[in-house]
Design a binder for these strands. Structure first.
Lengths: 123, 123
DNA sequence: ATCGTTGCAAACTCTTTGCAGGATT
DNA sequence: AATCCTGCAAAGAGTTTGCAACGAT
């Protein structure tokens, strides 16, 4: 299956590159619409799926929120969500203190850490 | 608005008390059905909402998952999700190393920490 | 010209809501 | 008896899919 370069896919890639933060499908739609008028939400979902399969995007799940996606290959980091504007930002590094203690018999394979608060634009 | 004690609400409370871990509406339904045959998922959702309003339950959001609920008033703790069986467990304490560093202008109000792995039953 | 991609609308899943009958106080 | 609660079915929100037309190669 050859993949083609459409204006729509290009607009979606550009949205992620220029925003530089995890985007929801809905956010992606509004940025992509600035470049391709009439682009549909179904196209956003389909292209996000292909970009995840191509490993150009990775999913970012936020507790209690719908999925976001960010450009892949950034190394271990965590996320911040602004309670005012709802935007999600990357937080470099990891403030985890060694290995977390788990009850007997439990084995950890990964962790996720989220910070909630107010971003620099909304403060 | 007086609240009444129905068999359904009682079964839902019992489900949370006997399981002792955060439950999804679907999980709550199957435990409650053991006591009240024919109980409907709408009743589960409605009672969970009231119990959250009464502060008997609190929502537990898991990244990439639908909401779970747990009995309220347990103090600061985090959660573990088993990648095999999907069950969520409470993890006592907090392994966060001091205050996380944030970029200039960002203010943190809370955080969430999740561990993913394999539980003692699935290992 | 081929065949991957798009927009539209319908289908799905999860959750919420309206309503008439049933249960609790 | 009054009225809150339940089950059912329909309605919403978010996401996925079928299909005919479109467009990149």
């Amino acid at each position: 299956m050859q993949s083609r370069n459409t204006r729509q896919k290009e607009a979606i890639r550009t949205a992620f590159m220029t925003e530089g933060r995890p985007l929801s499908p809905e956010e992606t739609l509004s940025y992509a619409q600035e470049q391709v008028e009439g682009i549909s939400i179904a196209t956003i979902y389909r292209n996000i799926s292909s970009l995840v399969e191509e490993r150009w995007l990775t999913p970012v799940s936020i507790p209690g929120e719908s999925a976001r996606y960010e450009i892949a290959g950034k190394g271990h980091h965590h996320h911040f969500r602004c309670n005012q504007c709802g935007k999600v930002f990357e937080m470099p590094g990891c403030s985890l203190n060694g290995k977390p203690k788990l009850p007997r018999g439990f084995r950890a394979t990964s962790h996720e850490f989220f910070i909630f608060g107010v971003c620099s634009e909304c403060k």
